[in-house]
Design a protein around this nucleic acid. Structure first.
Lengths: 229, 229
DNA sequence: ACAAATTTTTAGATTTGCCTAAAATTTAAT
DNA sequence: ATTAAATTTTAGGCAAATCTAAAAATTTGT
């Protein structure tokens, strides 16, 4: 395969930049700003500029001075490969090693850089080709293809509707632990009963149990909207 | 834990040096030579000297100029930790991902550097606390303890004796593939029928089947000597 | 024992990836 | 539109890990 030449020469640091640029590029459609990359990676803008030049020479990003950066087709494919590995390892950690969903990220950040096609394809098979990671995010297939699940934020749905909880927007350990503590997990049936006008907090029914959650919580939970309950 | 402070600051390169010094130190009881390290790691003696100095400052090795190098107690513990990880990952690759025993080394070389105590202990549990890796080498426990199995080289046993094949001395892909091709695997019952005076080759019976192997092959196969057959 | 060969170390350079400080460019504000 | 503010890049430096070439120490051979 053609792209392998490139993939196998990439350093850990280069891979992390590519991944960050990919994630930032998803949000806005525009070019990604140097400062944004630096902030997310907890490094300095000057370091980012350095790296961007190197990535540009390897044809992983499109770069024009002062104009921000975007991934090339090759960069995009590379990013999806790394994300595939990250998310498959997350599934492995939860399914096979009993990690909780707030513990997987740190270790997956290391495992995602292991280089072996056979390893990741075998892992995929061991896990029975999962389509989503423990936070509900889609796992790209071998060729980088994946489809975003049809979902919406709980904060956006109308009263008396709901669906199955299928993902989180914020997957920080803090938020995930909060959800654990309150018995909220992927797969739960959630129905919005009432929305408080004053602060936007929601009265919901989750797997039959009634509880109240703030607007912030609701705006970080995805549900698969399919039917009125 | 005290040693963790050190462990978590180690670079991949430092870990590889420690591992190499450990392996070389096993063979001879003496100090390990700079040149020997350089050769095994495919690097230059001057690079080795540089690194040894750094390791010495971190109290991982004992070092006196021109006098070779040996691991400190801390260095030894560190080495055993890395070897534990390497061998557990090898078991994982064979048992769970259907790798063959000649394919595991390269990937395990990468996986052994992943830093997470929880990860490795969970992996240990998933694999049901294996005591030996796919080549028959012992896996250190959490505290670095392990016992060498009571075994001997097939080339050393007397005619009409034998035992179960429990390990290989040379675990290069070349040798392992040769064994596969000839249907020799760990667990086989092997009995020495005759030893050729001329070239030292052996007529053996392996799981009931008769075959002839060279002295070189026999001197790279370990059997658990327990009983005459 | 002493010269020759080998091994080991030093010295100085290179690459990667990061830093700080200062200069260049773009964007925002009045 | 021009200045002020923010962003981005350049320039120069640093640490890790490597290299080559040359110097120092040890070992070996006779």
């Amino acid at each position: 395969m053609y792209f392998c030449v490139n993939k196998y020469l990439m350093t850990r640091s280069e891979e992390n930049y590519i991944k960050t640029i990919f994630h930032l590029g998803r949000k806005g459609t525009q070019e990604v700003a140097t400062n944004a990359i630096a902030e997310l990676m907890e490094t300095k803008p000057s370091s980012v500029t350095d790296m961007i030049k190197r990535l540009s020479e390897k044809d992983l990003v499109n770069y024009k001075r002062y104009q921000g950066v975007s991934l090339t087709a090759l960069g995009n494919k590379t990013a999806l490969g790394i994300i595939r590995k990250h998310r498959l390892w997350e599934v492995f950690l939860v399914e096979k090693l009993d990690f909780s969903w707030d513990e997987v990220h740190e270790v997956a950040e290391q495992l995602e850089h292991i280089k072996s096609d056979k390893l990741i394809d075998s892992l995929d098979r061991l896990l029975a080709f999962p389509k989503f990671d423990p936070h509900g995010d889609p796992i790209p297939d071998k060729n980088g293809g994946f489809k975003e699940r049809d979902r919406e934020l709980l904060s956006e749905v109308a009263i008396n509707t709901g669906g199955v909880c299928v993902g989180v927007k914020d997957s920080s350990a803090t938020f995930l632990k909060f959800l654990d503590k309150n018995g909220i997990a992927l797969g739960n049936q959630i129905k919005v009963m009432e929305i408080e006008e004053f602060d936007g907090s929601l009265n919901i029914e989750i797997d039959g149990r009634k509880m109240q959650i703030s607007h912030v919580i609701a705006s970080n939970l995805y549900i698969k909207a399919k039917d009125e309950i």
